[in-house]
Amino acid sequence: MDSLLRVEHVTISYNGKPVVQDVSFELKQGEILGIVGESGSGKSTVIKAIMGLLGEEGLVTEGDIWYKGENLTSMSEKKLRGYLGKEIGMVFQDCKAALCPVRTIGAQIHEAVSEHEKISRQETWKRAGEIMKKIGLDDSERVLNSYPFELSGGMNQRVGICTAMIMHPNLLLADEPTSALDVTVQKQVVEELLLMRKEYHTAMILVTHNIGVVKMMADRILVLQNGVVRDYGETDAVLNHSEDPYTKKLMSSVLHLKRD
């Protein structure tokens, strides 16, 4: 199977200073890649580069990012905007903070969809309701009429998943999607993301520091330290059989509860 996404020897710099160096990986349709590492390792920077969200000071200074044979790094802003949302979706770490506080959820989802196609508000709400039902929001009418501050953290995170998935993108980028949630809701969100992969065969890149989440979700793992790849491979191989000293240290720092 051909790669859906291919990142080739990418170096990312801010103000001319490299912060991520020589990163390479590939992703096929329906696969999940987990990117792990300590804070400041460059995890989020990699997916921001894919989305073209590095800001004015950030730049891919070496390498290429290929999506379906198209080079995202040399693509015009107008053409890239056509891909974002429709082909490539994004779930943020704190979806409540990413939402406008003075507009209803329904209005914001409809705006996101109508950016790519002519669609009525009623059709948008129907689509949103179908996805919300799959991820545990049975009262979609109330949710769509609500403002972000009227919903819990877990519900806002589900709204973020719904917004990202409503166009059925081929690739979903998730930046610490469970870190702002309590453990019970974390488990539910992980299960809902896995359901989205099953339903739509969506490929995902999961950025997280939570090894338990990666173990449950990822087919392969990329380990970053200070912007440099320390390990890359199948999940079991990286978690349990790595020879890299940093990876072994990272895995040994995970807390395990033992019952006598």
Rank of each mutant, 00 (worst) to 15 (best):
L5R: 02
L5S: 04
L5F: 03
H9M: 12
V10N: 06
T11A: 08
I12T: 05
Y14R: 07
G16D: 11
P18S: 09
V19Q: 04
V20G: 00
Q21S: 15
V23Q: 03
S24M: 10
F25H: 07
E26Y: 12
G34D: 04
I35F: 01
I35P: 01
G37N: 07
E38F: 08
S39D: 09
S41M: 02
G42V: 05
K43Q: 04
V46N: 00
V46L: 00
I47F: 00
L53Q: 11
L53A: 11
L54F: 00
E56D: 15
V60L: 03
E62V: 02
E70L: 11
M75V: 09
L80V: 07
R81F: 05
K86W: 10
F92L: 07
Q93M: 00
C95M: 14
C95V: 13
K96I: 12
C100K: 14
P101D: 11
R103K: 14
I105Y: 01
G106Q: 12
Q108F: 03
S114L: 10
E115F: 15
H116A: 04
E117H: 11
I119G: 10
T124L: 05
T124R: 03
T124Q: 09
R127P: 06
R127M: 08
R127C: 08
G129D: 10
I131W: 02
K133M: 13
D138L: 14
L144D: 09
N145T: 11
Y147P: 08
P148D: 09
E150C: 08
L151C: 06
S152M: 10
M155T: 13
N156Q: 07
R158H: 06
R158E: 06
I161G: 02
C162F: 03
C162R: 02
T163P: 07
A164R: 08
I166E: 06
H168I: 04
P169C: 03
N170G: 15
L173Y: 01
S179T: 14
D182T: 06
V183L: 13
T184F: 06
T184L: 13
V185Q: 01
K187N: 13
Q188Y: 07
Q188M: 13
E191I: 06
L193M: 15
L194F: 02
M196K: 06
I205R: 00
I205C: 01
L206T: 06
L206G: 05
N210P: 05
N210I: 01
V213P: 05
A218R: 00
L222W: 00
Q225I: 07
N226Y: 12
R230C: 13
R230G: 03
R230I: 08
D231K: 03
Y232D: 09
Y232L: 15
Y232H: 12
P245G: 10
Y246C: 10
Y246W: 11
Y246D: 11
K248D: 09
K248T: 13
K249L: 14
K249F: 10
M251H: 07
S253H: 08
H256F: 06
R259N: 15
